[in-house]
């Protein structure tokens, strides 16, 4: 985490005085972007840097669904299953993904490429169903589009590209 401190310092400038505690969430997000998850050493370093009680960091990490303390697959497929998506076939989408990847929601493929997660509303109800791959929304998904998406991602990994 240490190498991110300059970034945090810049972030801090935008915040009013005495907002160190507020930086917990942005910093954790940044750390997770960097490492893929939040490790024990990151917590220790962050607590040391922000001078917040460690329990606050632990609470935040356990509370927010987007933060995690364990590594997951390279591509995090988050399929929305809330009302609007369900009404446009999200259940089929998830079932299809699950079949195609061979994992149940919440699991990671054995090769560590994909992690499939069911999530509640992603705020893309008009273009449902939606699947979020890492940060990017893939909207109006259908079985064919899904196949193509997963195949492309898998091919990219095989090619060694990003």
């Amino acid at each position: 985490m240490k190498h991110l401190i300059p970034e945090f310092e810049k972030m801090k400038e935008r915040y009013p005085e005495g907002f160190e505690s507020s930086l917990v969430l942005p910093c954790l997000r940044r750390i997770q972007e960097d490492r893929g998850f939040v490790a024990e050493e990151d917590i220790v370093a962050l607590v040391d840097y922000l001078k917040v009680p460690r329990i606050q960091v632990e609470e935040v990490l356990s509370y927010y669904t987007m933060l995690r303390r364990k590594p997951i697959g390279r591509f995090h497929l988050q399929a929305c299953r809330n009302i609007a998506c369900s009404m446009r076939g999200a259940e089929g989408v998830i079932a299809h993904l699950s079949r195609k990847l061979g994992v149940k929601p919440g699991q990671t493929t054995p090769d560590g490429t994909f992690t499939l997660t069911e999530v509640e509303c992603l705020g893309s109800c008009g273009t449902a169903p939606v699947v979020m791959v890492n940060e990017a929304y893939h909207e109006n998904m259908s079985t064919e589009k899904l196949d193509r998406l997963v195949d492309e991602l898998a091919a990219g990994v095989r090619a060694g590209g990003k």
């Binding site: 009680p53 460690r54 509370y63």
Partner: peptide, 28 residues
């Protein structure tokens, strides 16, 4: 632990009906 003993030793983890009281992991 936050207001009297100031050890910040305990917290509520997770959310909804599976929230749990937990001690901070560094053992304070």
């Amino acid at each position: 632990t936050r207001e009297i003993s100031k050890s910040n030793g305990l917290g509520m983890q997770n959310r909804a009906d599976h929230s749990l009281v937990r001690a901070v992991e560094d053992g304070s």
